[in-house]
Each structure stands twice: as C-alpha cells, then as structure tokens.
Amino acid sequence: MKPLKKQEQNAAFSIVLIKLLQGFITSDEKKYWEPLLIYQETVRDYFATLGLSLHLSMDDGYAFLKQGALKQDDASAQDQQIGEALEEAADETDETTDTQMPTLVRRMPLSFDVSLLCILLREALEQFDSKVSDDHRLVLHRFDIYDLLKLFYEEKTDETKQFKKFDTLINRVAELGFLKELKGNQNSFEVRRIIKAQFDAEKLSEIKAQMILEIEGV
C-alpha cells in the first residue's frame, strides 16, 4: 500500500472517527475499514477520552462504539468534546478535494415492525452459525424473509398488499445496514454480522416473547 501523505492521513483518520460516531463500520466498506485497521490504537485512545470504547471484530468484520461508564463531570462535558472532535475533523479535511466527509446524523428509534424483523434476522443468524457450514454468510431470499414475518402477522386476503409492507420493512433494515442486497439479484440478501452486536443474543428470547404478547394483544 502506498504511504499516505500527512494531509491524507488526517483525512482518513477523521472520516473513521465520524463514521464510527454515526454508527458502525463493516469490512466491505474499504474506505473506512482499511484506515480503521491502520489507526486502530489511535482511534481507541481518542474515543477513550470521550468515554467511548471501540469494539472491533476481525472474524465477523465489523466495528462500533460502545458507551462506557462516565463520571458525572465527564458526562456533562462529553457533548462538548464530541462537538470539538467533529469540528477538528472537518478542519483537517477542508483542503482535501478527493475525500468526502460523512455527515453526522442522529440515531433514530426503530419502529416495532422494524425491530421485529431485526430480531428475527438476528435469530436466523444464530441458528445458521450453530450449524457446520463452509459458508460464512447467511443469504436469505426475499420470500424466506416473508416467511419469517408472516408468523407474526395475521393472514391477509390481499397478499400483495402484505408483501408490499414486508418489502418496506426489508428496505428499511437494509438502509440501517443489517441487510445487504446481493449484486445482480434484488431478491437475495446477506444478513450482515453487525446485527449480532446491535442485538444482544442474551435478550433475544425475552424481546421476542414481549413482541409476541404485543402482537397477540395480551
């Protein structure tokens, strides 16, 4: 790999910081993953000052930030520190024309239906991993996902309308980064392994049981 110039190093480091503050990085996002591996320890140290810890899985190919325990004084200053960090990151890349800075966005709460699909996909991945397989990727056909969802929804006489609703959920989960549409095949999706980190396996059964009760109106 060609050595980066100082300005390019600053830009690469900065976009990794902001991307992690946005959510997560996966190994297929080369623009972020490669500099993350290069600056891994520096990134860890940097976020530690903000009360955040970097969780990186080389096996599953993802990285994300986790909130650490902060003292009250540290917590009150955290928002200001993050703001300063983003301002510094933007300043470092003002003169760089080839690198686009991602925009920091707030995380939006998930709807009940989207949460349900995420839980079902997380459970499917857990079942997939429990089996001996040479394939590291779980790929589901669109109709496989329909079948997962239909168990939790009343049967509709208008199946087309129901499938449109399911497609909306699939698209939303794909936008969140938990599903990845395979190139050249709009009906096949890879369940991305970052979903394991975002939905704790220990709480899967509890959350699913609560969702069943809500669906049944108990």
Rank of each mutant, 00 (worst) to 15 (best):
P102S: 09
C118W: 00
R107A: 12
K161E: 13
F199K: 01
E154P: 05
L120M: 06
F163A: 09
Q81V: 06
D147Y: 13
I38R: 10
T26N: 09
A90Y: 07
E206V: 12
E29K: 11
D158F: 15
I215H: 10
L65A: 02
D73W: 15
D91N: 13
F152L: 05
Y32R: 02
Q127K: 15
F128Y: 06
D200H: 12
K30Y: 13
F189M: 02
R193H: 14
E175S: 05
A89F: 01
S14L: 01
R137S: 11
L56D: 03
Y32I: 01
T160G: 10
D135M: 08
L21D: 00
V105C: 00
D98K: 14
Q22N: 15
L120K: 03
K31L: 14
F64V: 03
K131A: 13
S205D: 15
D135W: 02
T96W: 14
P35F: 01
Y146P: 09
Q186K: 07
L140V: 01
G51N: 00
D167M: 03
D134Q: 11
A89C: 15
F13I: 10
Q100W: 12
L140G: 01
Y62K: 04
D91E: 10
T99H: 03
F163M: 08
A12Q: 13
D74K: 08
K31N: 10
M101T: 04
F13E: 04
E41Q: 14
L52W: 01
K183F: 15
E29T: 07
I207Y: 15
N171W: 06
L176H: 06
E175P: 02
Y62N: 01
K31Y: 08
L213R: 11
V43Q: 02
G177H: 00
H141P: 00
E206L: 14
S115R: 10
L182A: 05
D167S: 13
V114F: 15
K2A: 12
S188R: 10
W33E: 03
L37F: 05
F13A: 05
T103M: 02
S133N: 14
I38N: 09
D144E: 14
A124W: 04
Q162D: 11
Y32E: 01
V132P: 08
L36W: 01
Q127L: 14
H136K: 06
A77D: 08
T96G: 06
L204N: 11
K5G: 13
Q81C: 08
F166S: 07
K165F: 15
S115N: 10
F143L: 09
K183C: 08
D94E: 12
I215F: 14
M58F: 13
L86Q: 02
R107F: 15
E95P: 04
F178V: 02
